[in-house]
Computed example of a mutant assay.
Amino acid sequence: MDPQPPTAPSPRAWRAAPVSALSRAGADRAALRREETDLVPRLLADAERTRVVLVRGGEVAVDADGRLDLVAPEPDAAAGRLAAFLGEDAQHAYVALLLDQPSALDPVLGADGLPAAERWPEAGRAWASLRDQGETLDDRDAGLATAAVALAAWHARHPRCPRCGEPTTPTRAGWARRCSADGSEHFPRTDPAVIMAVVDDTDRLLLGHAAHWPDRRFSTLAGFVEAGESAEGAVRREVAEETAIVVSDVEYVTSQPWPFPASLMLAYRARATTTTIEVDGTEVTDARWFTRDGLARDVASGDVLLPPPSSVARLLIEDWFGGPVG
């Protein structure tokens, strides 16, 4: 009998990755334009094409409909304030004005003697954090706001050179800082973190309560990737450290920028090979296995509070649940 050719394995069913609220984007970042000379000042002088995203205290200005309150630039309103080019689309170019950040270490005073930030017309504007309102923004606004908040946090924490301690000045349209002493250039950093939906053989979901959270708040486990560690290794280590659960079959799901102040959340699913929970008592003070019926009942009664809809944690929970919880 002639040998039969080996049977090809059945193709694995393709499953579209869920999209988290803050992973969306509509405008083109147009990163190559950051090299253009005086790009930001030129854009701020073009009130017809340019629109400004206002950032203050980690929040963005929003309108009554939950969209970004985009404004046309006003003459000299950005004087002394740090601004960054966010990108463009067919209608507009977008610039973030970081109201908390001077363009130099010392705030610039106007003719009226007031800091430049106080001269921007802020009266009547509403301000919102991405945690609270990220899911209400459309794709364009979500991408612009996330980049603006991340840049504001980075500039606030890096006014001086990490090599020599001398002042740095913004360059590359707000996407880098250059040391005034040694000329070294520094770019925004992003800290990778893992977040995971851990399920057992009966399809229960593991949720934990962090020590610093409000009472009754439960979410998926998460933690930072350590130096020299793979993301999958971080998933296994963090779950074991926080709950003593051993996991296998770590599968990537999606990612989400989390600019509080500078994280990229890498979301995973993982299969538990053990089920006995022992929380570390330091980072995680409680952890439980939930069935779908049990989680729905606890959320409805208020016994469990879930993370905000803007978070990738909520996305992982509802992806396992099969739809919105509550």
Rank of each mutant, 00 (worst) to 15 (best):
G110S: 06
G57D: 06
A296P: 06
P11K: 09
A78N: 12
R237I: 06
A181D: 07
A8R: 15
D201G: 13
G228M: 04
A78R: 06
F187N: 04
R67L: 14
T202D: 15
T243R: 02
R160I: 13
P167C: 04
G294W: 12
W213R: 10
W289P: 12
D249R: 11
G174L: 08
E241P: 00
H158S: 10
G124Q: 06
T202V: 15
A152W: 00
P115Q: 06
D303E: 14
D286L: 07
G208Y: 08
A78C: 12
E118I: 00
R163M: 12
V235Q: 01
V253G: 01
R297Q: 13
D201F: 01
T7S: 15
M196G: 06
D132G: 10
A93M: 05
D132S: 11
G228S: 11
T169W: 15
A267P: 04
L70P: 01
A240P: 12
E185Y: 04
P257L: 11
D286A: 10
R217L: 15
P107R: 01
D100P: 02
V53G: 02
V53I: 02
R140W: 05
R217C: 15
Y268R: 05
L206A: 00
E278S: 13
A17P: 04
E88G: 02
D303R: 15
A244G: 12
W320V: 06
E122P: 03
D191G: 13
L70W: 08
A300Y: 01
T50S: 02
L205K: 10
V299I: 09
Y94I: 06
D139T: 13
Q91S: 09
D38P: 00
E36V: 13
L97N: 03
A90L: 05
L99I: 09
G134S: 06
G233L: 07
D319L: 13
D200Y: 00
E74Q: 15
L32Y: 14
V246A: 12
L221N: 08
Y252Q: 08
S10F: 08
F321K: 02
F260R: 14
V312I: 07
A152I: 03
T285R: 09
A211H: 14
D100H: 03
P307R: 07
T190A: 14
V250F: 05
G208N: 05
A64S: 11
A234N: 11
A31H: 09
T168Y: 04
A64L: 14
P102N: 02
A117V: 09
P9T: 14
W120T: 13
R34E: 08
L305C: 00
D100R: 04
I245W: 04
W175T: 08
L206T: 02
L39C: 07
V108Y: 08
D100E: 01
A90S: 06
G174A: 03
S10E: 14
C179Q: 05
M265Q: 07
A27N: 09
D69N: 10
E118A: 11
L130T: 11
A262P: 00
A25L: 00
E74K: 09
